[in-house]
Every structure is written in structure tokens, then in C-alpha cells.
């Protein structure tokens, strides 16, 4: 399998007033194309920061990040925005749908940045909502949907442009067990049926079991030696 994401000795330091807070301390990681990777670790370990870096919404203080052969850590803000529109799909913990738009309009948002015609956009939206099983809710506004349905709309928005990489930050963190299971099953299906490369940050060992592999971060470094099965049954 070829490498989709190649992270080399990445460091990230945040400046908080006069203080420098190191978050990532030299992370090196490869994510093969078609992988479903779960990133776990305690709060403040740097997992969301690592996710943000590979998704191009943050920049490393040092080191390099290649995605699909392109060194995104050298991109300008404008280049990054354009790159994200074509290559990354985002799934957030709090769904982050636009409340004034209905489900179909929310899913259509990333397509507005493409040259697709209105008809083509409608077809893509219909297909994406079909994959997440919400064609019948396309005209519903976020307030008219359950948490699980909102998250599925968010997933449809993330996949509608057929991105190279899907990043999910605690996608089940705000869902009950049933909806969490459905969301994870959906992500797993996207990975197996549609060969989507997914990187997911989670606190939940049961959620991580849906991934093909899990990596742990502690104090800004990747660590090994965790037994997922034990953690999941705990």
C-alpha cells in the first residue's frame, strides 16, 4: 500500500502570551492509502493537533507533512484552503452544520467551491445523502434532526467532494451508544466499501476498535504497547 500521509519529525509549539507550550515533540508517522487509523491519548497529548496538521488547518513549527506526495506544510493559507477543498473531508464532534441551511444545502457547501453545475451538485448531494441513508431528510434543517442524523449529514458533507483523506475529531463524542455505533459503522463502511482513508481521534477504545489500527500519543509523542482489547473491555 502506498503512503498517503507522511509526517516527518513534526513539532508544534503554541505560544500562549509569553509562554511557549510544546504540543508535539517530533512525531513521525505514515498513513497508508486506504487506512483507517485511530489516534488515542489523554487530553493534551496532541492528537487533535496532529489531526489538524495532516488536514492542513494548522501548520507545524518544525518538520514536514506530505499528503498524496505534496508537502502541505509549505503551502500558503490560500493554497491550503484550496487544497483542503479538494482533498480533505472533515467530521467534527459537534457536527458543526450551518443551522440556516437544510441538510442538502449543508452537504452542498463544499461543492460551491467547485465548478460543478447546479444539476451536478444536486446529483452529488443526492448520492452523498444516499450513502449515509438520509435522502428522505434532505430538506430538514439541523434543528429538525437527531444528533446521530446531524452527524450523518456532516459525514455526507465530508465525503461529497470525494476527498483523498477523511479526518474525524471525536465523531462519536456527543452521541449516545446507538448513534455512536451507527456512525462508526458508517465510517467503517466508507473505509471498506469506498476505500476512504480515515484518521479518527477518539477517547473511546470501543470506537478505536472500528479502525484498522490505533496509535497512541502521550505528551506529544507517539507511544506503543497499549492493548486495545483490554482497554475496550475495561
Amino acid at each position: 500500500m502506498d503512503t498517503l500521509v507522511d509526517i516527518n519529525n513534526v513539532r508544534k509549539v503554541y505560544k500562549r502570551d509569553a509562554f511557549e507550550v510544546p504540543v508535539l515533540n517530533g512525531v513521525t508517522l505514515e498513513v497508508p492509502r486506504g487506512d483507517f487509523l485511530a489516534l488515542m491519548g489523554p487530553s493534551g497529548s496532541g492528537k487533535t493537533t496532529l489531526l489538524n496538521l495532516m488536514a492542513g488547518i494548522d501548520r507545524p513549527t518544525a518538520g514536514s507533512i506530505f499528503v498524496d506526495g505534496k508537502e502541505i506544510s509549505r503551502f500558503s493559507e490560500t493554497q491550503l484552503a484550496s487544497w483542503r477543498a479538494r482533498h480533505v473531508g472533515f467530521i467534527f464532534q459537534m457536527y458543526n452544520l450551518i443551522p440556516v441551511l437544510n441538510a442538502a444545502e449543508n452537504v452542498e457547501l463544499p461543492l460551491l467551491l467547485t465548478k460543478l453545475s447546479k444539476k451536478e451538485r444536486r446529483e452529488h448531494v443526492h448520492a452523498a445523502l444516499g450513502i449515509v441513508g438520509l435522502e428522505d431528510r434532505s430538506l430538514h434543517y439541523p434543528r429538525q434532526l437527531s444528533g446521530g442524523q446531524e452527524q450523518r449529514v456532516a459525514i455526507a458533507r465530508a465525503i461529497v467532494t470525494d476527498p483523498t483523506l477523511l479526518v474525524a475529531d471525536e465523531p462519536t463524542g456527543d452521541l449516545d451508544a446507538k448513534n455512536a455505533q451507527e456512525t462508526l459503522d458508517l465510517l467503517q463502511r466508507l473505509n471498506t466499501e469506498y476505500q476512504k482513508t480515515i484518521v479518527m481521534v477518539t477517547h473511546d477504545p470501543k470506537a478505536a476498535l472500528h479502525a484498522k489500527r490505533t496509535l497512541h500519543l502521550e505528551k506529544g509523542l507517539l507511544v506503543n504497547g497499549y492493548n486495545l482489547d483490554t482497554m475496550a473491555s475495561a
Binding site: A55, T78, A81, R84, R86, I98, L113
Partner: peptide, 14 residues
């Protein structure tokens, strides 16, 4: 603020 951040994340330029 959050919605704007989401729009930027999915590729809306500044």
C-alpha cells in the same frame, strides 16, 4: 465564529 471556522476548514478562502 465556529461556523466561519468550519467554512474555512472545508476550503472557503479568507
Amino acid at each position: 465564529v465556529t461556523e466561519i471556522a468550519v467554512l474555512k476548514a472545508i476550503g472557503f478562502e479568507q
